[in-house]
Computed example of a mutant assay.
Amino acid sequence: MSKLRVGIIGCGGIANGKHLPALSQNGNVELAAFCDIVEEKARQAADQYGIEGAAVYTDYQELLKDGSLDIVHVLTPNDSHSPISVAALDAGKHVMCEKPMAKTAEEARAMLEAARRSGKKLTIGYNNRFRPDSQHLKKVCEAGELGEIYYAKAHAIRRRAVPTWGVFLDEEKQGGGPLIDIGTHALDLTLWMMDNYKPVSVTGSVFHKLGSKENAANAWGPWDPAKFTVEDSAMGFIKMENGATIVLEASWALNTLDIDEAKCSLSGTEGGADMKGGLRINGEDSSRLYVKEIDLNAGGVAFYSGTSQRDIDVECSAWIDSVLNDTEPVVRPEQALVVTEILEAIYESARTGKTVYFD
C-alpha cells in the first residue's frame, strides 16, 4: 500500500514541536510539501522532515494545487484556520487543523460545511484526549461508572505563564487569549467526557487585570503590556439542555496557587472523578465513601495498548488510521464546533454583560 502524502501549511512552533516529529515517526505517511509565509521556515522543515525533493511554498494556494497530496495539516494562527481548511477540503484533501477549530463560530461552521460538501475528513488538534489519564477516564464515563454527569469543571489555569512569542497576544489574529488558547482544550475534554454537546445558555466574564503590568514575573520572561491586547483570564458558566452545568476557568496570569491545565473534574449520580495530581475516582460503597487513585504507569492507552508512544504520536496515529481505514476521526468537527460556539458565547456575554442563549 502506498503511503499517504502530507502537506504542511504553517511551519512554526506547533509544527516543529508537535506535528512534524509525530508524522515523521509514522510509517504510513511521507511529508511531501511544506508552506510558510517565511520561506526559510518552510525550507528548514522540508530539509529536516521532508522526503527527497519535497516541495516548498510560500502560498498555500499553490500547495493545494498538488493533486498528489492526500492530507493537509493547517498549523497557522487562528484567524486563518477556516479559509485555509475550507480551501484544502475543497481541493480534495483530508484536513487536520490545529485547535481551536476557528476564530469564530461562523468560520467553524464553514469548515464543517466544506467537510460535508467535499466528503473529506476534518479533525481538530485536541491532543489532550489522547493522554493515558484521559483515555482511562473516558472508559470510566462510557461504562456508566459515574452515572449521569450533571456538574463539571473545566480547568485551564496558569499562575504566570503568558506566551510572549508569535501572535499569542494579538487579539486580531488569535481571537482571544487564554480562553481560546488553553481553555479550549479543557472545554473539549470536559464535553467529550460528558458526551454532551447541547448547550442552552452561557454566561461569561473576561478580565484584563494583569496584562498591563510592567516587568511582570512570567515563565517566559516579562510580556510587553503594549502588545497584550487579549484577556489574561476568563470564566464561563455553561448550562446544557439536560440541565447539566459546566464551569470553565482559563488564565495565563492569575493570582492563585490552584494551578491545573487541560484537566476536568466530573460529578455524577454514581460517582465523581478529577485529574488533580493524577486521576482519582470517588464514590460510595456499602455506605462508605472511597477515593480510588488510578495507576497509569502500567499498560498503554486505548488505541495502542502496551506501547510507549507519547500522546502526540498516539493522536497522529489515530488520525492517519482514520484516513487509511475510512473511519470517524476521534475528534469530530461537529464536536469542535460546539467548543468554538461556547467560547464565542463567553466572549460575547462578557462584552454585553448578558447571558447568551442558544436556539
Rank of each mutant, 00 (worst) to 15 (best):
E231F: 04
S201F: 02
N127C: 10
H155C: 03
D326T: 08
L112M: 13
F34S: 04
I238T: 03
N297V: 01
E348M: 11
A226P: 00
V74W: 00
R131H: 09
V339Y: 00
L31G: 03
E107C: 07
S82I: 08
A42V: 11
C316Q: 08
E106K: 14
G306S: 10
F130Q: 03
R43M: 13
S287Y: 10
Q174W: 02
A350R: 02
A45D: 05
Y290A: 12
L343P: 01
A186M: 03
S212T: 05
D258M: 10
L266D: 02
P178H: 04
A262R: 06
N297T: 13
E107Y: 06
P163H: 07
E172W: 05
S317H: 13
A345T: 03
V162F: 07
G211A: 08
A219W: 08
Q25W: 03
T307A: 11
G183N: 05
V339L: 01
L191H: 00
G50T: 04
P83C: 15
D90A: 10
A226E: 15
F237C: 03
E107G: 12
M240K: 06
Y150A: 02
N196G: 03
K120M: 14
E270D: 11
I246C: 00
T123Q: 04
G13A: 14
K139M: 15
A108R: 08
P77K: 09
L343V: 14
V38N: 15
G27N: 14
S2L: 06
G175K: 06
I84A: 07
H81D: 13
N16E: 10
V72S: 06
S68Q: 14
R280Y: 04
C316A: 12
G300M: 10
E106G: 15
A45H: 05
G272R: 07
D359G: 13
K41G: 02
G10N: 10
G10R: 07
H208Y: 15
R131F: 14
S233H: 14
S80W: 12
M101H: 04
T76D: 05
N196R: 15
E171D: 11
